[in-house]
Computed example of a mutant assay.
Amino acid sequence: MQEDFFELIKQALLVKISHRGLKFGMCSIMNVKSGKCSEDCAFCAQSARHTTNAPVFGLKSKEEILRHAQRAKELGATHFSLVASGRGPTQSELAEVIEAIKYLKDRVDIKICASLGIIDEDGLRALKEAGLSRYHHNIETSREYFPTICSTHTFEERINTIKSIKNVGLECCSGCILGIGETKKDRISIAETLKEIGVDSVPINILVPIEGTRLGGKPSSITPLEVIETIALFRHTLKTPAIRLAGGREEGLGDFQALAFMAGADALMIGGYLTTPGRDPELDLRLKRDAIEFWKRFRDNAEK
């Protein structure tokens, strides 16, 4: 079993090097609207159906968003995402986000992304015309397990949004959250679905149980080594997209974060998350440098 595990990791890294070279992506997100979400996702602190300490506020000003985008650029991020709570944006919210995107495009050299929930093609097209590069919309878990964690919208609604993202020519960022009770079979199903719909970036989140949510009283159901195994399985299935460590990586992986980049991961979300802080960005920048150096040595050795 141990030999199989290490061979899986080795082969996953070979796939990463072969299909993506030494690329290491860095992105940052900003919580531009928080709380009072109508949906009942079991893990989410921002659901109006949960009682948590998550902040509640409306859309941030474009000036404040700019300050965060500039900081993300300083940290080395190539993508900066505006994330808003809710099932989807109202027309007035969409107009404000479009104005913010235009404002950012004129003032900071960074690719702008957005995560605004379920949205139609007209809205996505307007975002793209404003300068949006990528839209984020996680599938969260497998098709089979999804009804267990959310009852207020369906898995197909998420898939249809992703199809709309692709239809208008935007890049698509879509991934999952691990440790919410899913099985290994579910994790394989997630990877296969993401391959089928052709996403460009795959964020992998790990559950941080938040008091007041439906999963708040349950520890993450995945161990650090199972996360590493899942990353390797994802890389074998998803050969060309970025595989990005995102929320919960500090708690879910602990001292094993570096091993994720030996198992096929090659991107990182830095600077904190929506309702939980991240670690010191300097540690992440050091991790990036060390991972690239490891990949170089691995590649050179494999080519001998």
Rank of each mutant, 00 (worst) to 15 (best):
D120C: 00
R187W: 01
V15K: 03
E144P: 00
I222A: 03
I112E: 06
T193F: 04
E282R: 14
L238M: 09
E99F: 02
F43R: 08
I119R: 01
T154W: 12
E140A: 01
I98D: 11
H153S: 11
C37D: 02
I119G: 03
A267D: 05
E250D: 06
A260G: 05
L178H: 00
I243V: 11
G175V: 09
K36C: 13
Q70D: 13
G123Q: 02
E121C: 07
G21N: 08
Q2M: 11
I17D: 11
D122T: 14
N160F: 10
V199D: 03
P241K: 07
L285T: 01
K304N: 10
K304H: 10
G198D: 10
I231L: 12
R134E: 13
G58R: 12
K288F: 08
T240K: 15
I190K: 00
I101T: 08
H50C: 01
G248V: 15
K195F: 13
E3N: 15
L238G: 10
C37Y: 04
H136L: 10
I188M: 11
F155S: 03
I17W: 05
G123D: 00
I9W: 02
A95E: 15
L127K: 07
V15N: 08
K239W: 07
R49T: 14
L283S: 14
R49I: 13
E293S: 10
R125C: 07
N53I: 14
F234N: 04
A72F: 02
E293P: 03
R249H: 00
A191E: 06
A130L: 06
L59F: 05
I162D: 04
E251S: 13
T276H: 08
T78K: 14
S38G: 12
L259G: 04
K73V: 10
C172R: 09
E303P: 02
T193V: 11
H153W: 12
P281V: 03
D200P: 03
R297S: 13
K36D: 06
E93T: 01
I228L: 14
Y273W: 14
G252N: 03
G198Y: 01
S142W: 01
T237Y: 07
S142Q: 05
S92P: 12
I197C: 13
K185W: 00
I188S: 08
G175S: 00
F5I: 15
V199G: 01
T154I: 02
Y273Q: 06
R214P: 01
L268E: 15
S47P: 14
I270S: 15
K166D: 05
P209I: 03
R49S: 12
R299F: 04
T230F: 03
K60R: 13
G131T: 05
N53S: 15
G278K: 04
S18I: 00
E192C: 03
F24G: 06
L285Y: 00
V202E: 01
G179Q: 06
E157C: 13
F6S: 12
M26K: 10
L194N: 07
G76C: 09
F234W: 12
K111H: 12
F294E: 02
S85L: 15
A232H: 14
D120R: 00
I197E: 11
A100M: 00
G169N: 10
T141N: 09
T148V: 15
V202H: 09
F24P: 09
A130M: 06
P203F: 13
M1N: 05
E196C: 12
M262T: 11
T148S: 12
I222K: 09
S38H: 07
F43L: 04
A258W: 11
N53F: 12
